[in-house]
Amino acid sequence: MISRIVMGDFSRKFLGITALWVVMVSVILGADYDMLTDLGSSAETISRGNVEGFNFTASGMFENPASLAKIENASVGLFMTTLMDEAAYNNLALATRTPFGVIGFGYAETSVVDNPITAQDGNGEYFVTDTFDYRQGILRAAYADYLLPNICFGVSFSQYFNNFGNIKAAGANFDIGITFDRPDVSLSGFIRNFSPNSAIAFDNGNGTKSYEVIPTEFVMSGKWMMSTSFTVFGELTSRNHGNLYAGALQFSPNEFQDLQINGGYRQFYVLDKIKGGITLGVSLTLLGVKASYAYEKIEDHPQYDSKNYFSVSINL
């Protein structure tokens, strides 16, 4: 009788908190902050349709933080690309195993330099008065460890920032994730930006502030080793707009398992519409160093027809 009453109270409180959380997520208005992680955080992951959660290097902290737990000693990851000869993306991640689990630190950034500040002359035509450099970045700290031999848990804290010359923006949030491993099947689930009412605050340099919402995402993915040569990946990402799907096939020759050839498909938002595209790539591991390349087609640009991504990681 007493336990039923206690359970009844607990159930009501749990449901109440969950309902409040759902309402908080659903009533968030305004433009969503543009997430740097939408591009992808490593060439290896991008080549697999950007299916996240199966990057077992330090760069994995930009995906499911629980994946860091798979690092045995230490890891370094580096990712770089430049789009349209203008937007430079880079990230660097470091992680090491301690007696208390794996800890990691990472920094990701995109930058565009020489953006014009303009004015109007007496004829109504425009000219450049000065320039500024744009920078958007994430500082991340992560922790992960095994809960059970086949279950890992991870959490990461992110500090977001933007610089538009004299306009500065900052915000913070955190991710939590879990992985589950069986001999042939692995599952990954994480919540990106777990706190649903978090925003980036833009200081406009004139005493005013404006805000953009940091979007919360639920990312669930799976990996199935069909054979020693073929592995299939799939992912569902849920954001307040809707659902995005991704999938990939990886081939690794039996005679040379250090070589992985990947082909994938990923969906992404362009404004409020969902678009999709093919990704291709290759990873090669030699002497503990994994070098990866990924290719993705650009649609509709009159000058550029592809994006090319590179990453290097070392697991010690």
Partner: peptide
């Protein structure tokens, strides 16, 4: 409503790019 960030424009005419900016 576009999120804050940098955007790029391309001006084309007669099948070729004649100007661009951001």
């Amino acid at each position: 409503d576009l999120p804050a960030g940098i955007y790029f424009f391309v001006i084309s005419s007669e099948g070729r790019v004649i100007g661009k900016g951001k």
